[in-house]
Each structure stands twice: as structure tokens, then as C-alpha cells.
Amino acid sequence: MKGLIRNNFYSMENNIKISFVIALFLAVVSFFVKQEGFIQMIIAMQLSIFIVNVGTSLHADVVSKWNKFELTLPVKSNDIMKAKYISFTILILLGIIMGSITAVYAYAANGFSNARSICYGYEFGLTLSAAMAGIMYPLMLKIGTEKNEIIMIVSAIAAVGLRALLSAVLTPLTGEMNMQHPLVGIVSAIAAAVIFIGSYFVSVKIYRHKEFS
């Protein structure tokens, strides 16, 4: 499985570098911007910027026919999917690390005064990245990667929609439909994590029934 994960990262290497540069630029921007609203959006963007490479990864596999070839390797089909989802988890972790640069600086500059804003950035970023990956990958596996940009946009909209839906569902507990409420943030992040984990099992099932001609 180590080889499969290594291959995933080699094929995304260039795009990951670009994501790093963008995340680093956003971190630098955060040093000069004091508004809490910007800080939380920068953290959310840093958390989710790496996960857009999920589409790149699968598209590269299809173009090079690696997705067909890897089935002939001495690995179980479950392990191929596991390697993919471990790679996605690492991408999310990379986002968390980059987001933490912004969070640490914001804390150093202003203390805990904007802690809620930082938390919101993490919650929203995690919801966006985990739900996006969880929705995007099985969809691409099922219908192909030709329309990967559209699938990515649909996944992002679905991830935001998830948060909106939960804020509506949780109205009796939060008092009003408030997407920035801490409870909505935490429940959304947990729901996105559940989608991500569930997506693995869906992908395994799709992969087992997929034919490569």
C-alpha cells in the first residue's frame, strides 16, 4: 500500500506544490489583514485548497491508464481504495498545517480575542474539504473524470449546502438559522467526516463492480 500512496503523491506533486504556494500566500496575506471575517475565510481556504487535487489524482490515473494497471498489481482492490483515502486524509492534514500558520499568527497578534473566528475557519474548512472529497471521488469513479471540474464545483456546493441544511435543522437548538453558530460548525464538521468515511465504502463498492476495458 505504501507504493500506491507514493504513486498518488508523485502524480499530484506539481499540483500540491501549487496548492502550497497559494496556501503560503494566503498565510502571508493574513499577516496584514486584521478583520476576523477574512482570517476565518483564509483558514477555511487553506484547509480545502489541497483537497481539490483529488480530481487531478483520479484524472491522472485515467489518462495514464494507471487505474487499469494497478488492478494487475499484487495488491487487494480494497487496498487501492484505502491508499486513495489515506492520501486524501494526508491532503486534508496538509491543509490543517497550513491553516495553523495563519491561526498561530492570528493568536500571536491578537491573543484569544478572535478565537471563535479561527474555530469557524477550521470547522468550515474541514466541512468543505472532507465533504468535497467524500462526494467528489465516488462520483468521478462512477461517471468518469471527463467532467471533473463540474463534479468538483457540485461537490463544493453540496458541502456548503450541508452546512446550510444543518443550520436549518439545528434551529430549535441555536435559536435562529445561523451558519456561524458553534454547534452548526461542529455538527457540520462531524457530518462531513461521516460522509468522508462512508464515501470510502461506497467507492470500494463502485470499484469492485467497475470494468476496465
Partner: peptide, 13 residues
């Protein structure tokens, strides 16, 4: 051992 028509590996490798 398997060889398909064309390259089987990621172009970035």
C-alpha cells in the same frame, strides 16, 4: 507481468 498498449504509469513520474 503485464504490459498494455501505451504507458501504464503516471506521466509525472
Amino acid at each position: 507481468g503485464v504490459v498494455f498498449d501505451g504507458s501504464n504509469f503516471s506521466e509525472e513520474l
